[in-house]
Design a protein around this nucleic acid. Structure first.
Lengths: 136, 136
DNA sequence: CTAAGTGCAAAATGTTTGCATACTT
DNA sequence: AAGTATGCAAACATTTTGCACTTAG
């Protein structure tokens, strides 16, 4: 896979541009197609696998049966937490110094290496909390 | 689903007996079939979904594309955090003042009401972190 | 008797693979 | 030219769903 190809560049470039965000394989396929540079689904998967192995991209699964997400991990990738509302399903991305310390606490006091990107904090978002409990 | 059925009992009973262990839906189907009490796959899925909603069983996704695991969560599992090792699957129950404050922080700063009992923190336990990375 | 539960097989994902063709080097 | 990468379609695995049939209340 040493060859340099248009498709490989497109995938890497998109991931790099989307630093901070995470997207599913399908998002990537659609995004590339929308920008007029369609790349085959299998090709996208193959590049994502390669990039993941190389550590350039990180792969993680947000609970349930949901599909895998990929995120550029390149340089100083700011880890962020995910808050998911159990009612409406909204996923919130949170960057927060205080929360970053939590991983440190857990490691020091509970001897457990927290994986922020694989962890989803469940609860109720303000919209759902404020409204009547009817959307269940 | 108020009805009491043989199949429902079998699934619940198996989960209860397997307290501490976790198994995939397929494990459960196979296990029941092996003990001479075959239960249809869809029925097993339906009961697992119900039990999960009721909080009697907890659902996990340990790794990437792997299938979901279910574990009896029985009684008194509220008010503390769960740490799940992505390698060995061990579930740790953690009570901790510091972590209790996290929910407060999230509510105040991110307007999100965290649900401790529905949240599982994923990472690597000290046993797995200490050993060679061979159990993958 | 009526509503709910069961289980098969088919559909619906999300991901991987086989293979002929196109592209890199 | 020789070997890789691509992309379609088919294969896969897991979970969900449609529907006729059984069972609990």
């Amino acid at each position: 896979m040493g060859y340099n190809t248009k498709q490989g560049d497109l995938v890497l470039q998109l991931m790099r541009e989307s630093k901070g965000k995470h997207m599913t394989a399908d998002d990537i396929v659609r995004c590339l197609a929308d920008s007029g540079c369609a790349v085959g689904k299998s090709t996208v998967y193959r590049h994502l696998e390669k990039l993941t192995k190389e550590g350039i991209v990180r792969r993680f699964v947000l609970h349930d049966g949901e599909s895998a997400c990929y995120q550029y991990s390149g340089d100083g990738c700011s880890n962020h937490y995910h808050l998911k509302c159990s009612k409406c399903g909204t996923l919130m991305h949170v960057e927060c110094e205080y929360l970053d310390k939590v991983a440190g606490h857990i490691f020091e006091h509970h001897r457990f290496t927290l994986s922020e990107e694989n962890t989803v904090l469940y609860g109720i978002c303000s919209d759902c909390a404020g409204e009547a409990k009817s959307c269940e």
